[in-house]
């Protein structure tokens, strides 16, 4: 620290600072790099769904939900949907609370970072990690458990839009929830609690059509139920649609609910997002 060579730019000659898209791209790279260096996060995100599949497959063995549909195949849908929720909603909500506590967000505020750039960074990181996570899960499902994967493009298209909408909804809701959870500590206990309750009522741990009517109605208000149902439409044969409470896969409704949650999340984020915990 001998001499400072920083000369301030002359006023009036200073160009405009970079826009949200430029900073957002830089932030995607940063977020991915930080994710990759957090080994606990990497292992949890990528191994957890595989472990869930292993447990379901061991517990239920060769039992079938309906003729020709094994329990492991049925629950693969719920595990995929849960995985998306964990890499988006849960990971984002907890990470933001930590970044806020650590002062990372304070720096972004000081730098005048557009909040949209921050959101772009989170969404980009979520999409990449979700894709990797699902690729690992489906590879293990196909190679180790011989679960048949779809062969037609239409089902993969369904898989793609459910993943995309689910991950986006999870990201904005994760950002939204971070405004209400307070410290990183309470985020670390509160957000997973929300996730677990949603998993129980949304047909991740149980066959959805066997859940009590009240639970199904509560679950239908939240995205996870629709993501799980959408994933069943990808991985189960068409005949299984008859076993759904509605008697069909309800794709238009699924898209509408997930899109609605994206919009609700964006509105909440715009109104409540703060770089710092204590306002003023």
């Amino acid at each position: 620290m001998t001499t400072a060579t920083t000369h301030p730019a002359a006023p009036g000659t200073r160009p405009a600072p970079p826009g949200a898209a430029t900073i957002g791209r830089a932030r995607i790279g940063l977020e991915l790099r930080l994710f990759a260096r957090d080994s606990g996060q990497v292992v949890f995100s990528f191994a957890y769904p595989v472990v869930m599949l292993l447990i379901f497959a061991s517990v239920f063995g060769d039992q079938e939900v309906s003729p020709g549909v094994g329990f492991d195949r049925y629950f693969l849908a719920g595990i995929a949907a849960t995985g998306i929720m964990l890499t988006s909603f849960q990971a984002v909500g907890i990470a933001i609370a930590e970044e806020r506590d650590r002062g990372d967000l304070g720096r972004l505020q000081v730098l005048g970072t557009p909040p949209a750039a921050y959101a772009i960074g989170k969404a980009g990181q979520v999409l990449v990690t979700t894709v990797v996570q699902l690729a690992v899960l489906l590879t293990v499902a196909a190679l180790v458990y011989d679960i048949p994967l779809p062969t037609d493009a239409g089902r993969w298209l369904t898989f793609a839009w459910i993943t995309l909408l689910g991950a986006l909804a999870g990201t904005v809701l994760g950002i939204a929830v971070s405004a209400f959870v307070g410290s990183a500590r309470s985020a670390g206990t509160g957000i997973p609690a929300i996730a677990v309750v949603l998993q129980f009522v949304s047909g991740v741990f149980f066959v959805y059509s066997e859940l009590p009517e009240v639970m199904r109605q509560v679950a239908a208000l939240f995205p996870l139920k629709w993501m799980t149902q959408g994933m069943r439409s990808v991985f189960l044969p068409d005949a299984a649609a008859a076993a759904e409470p509605a008697g069909s896969w309800e794709h238009p409704m699924t898209a509408a609910v997930l899109a609605a949650w994206v919009i609700i999340g964006v509105v909440v984020v715009v109104r409540t997002f703060r770089w710092r915990r204590s306002g003023g």
């Binding site: 940063l30 790099r33 930080l34 260096r37 957090d38 970044e99 650590r102 002062g103 990372d104 304070g106 720096r107 000081v110």
Partner: peptide, 8 residues
């Protein structure tokens, strides 16, 4: 109290 991603 500003921070910067510690893993960088």
């Amino acid at each position: 109290t500003t921070g910067a991603g510690d893993a960088l």
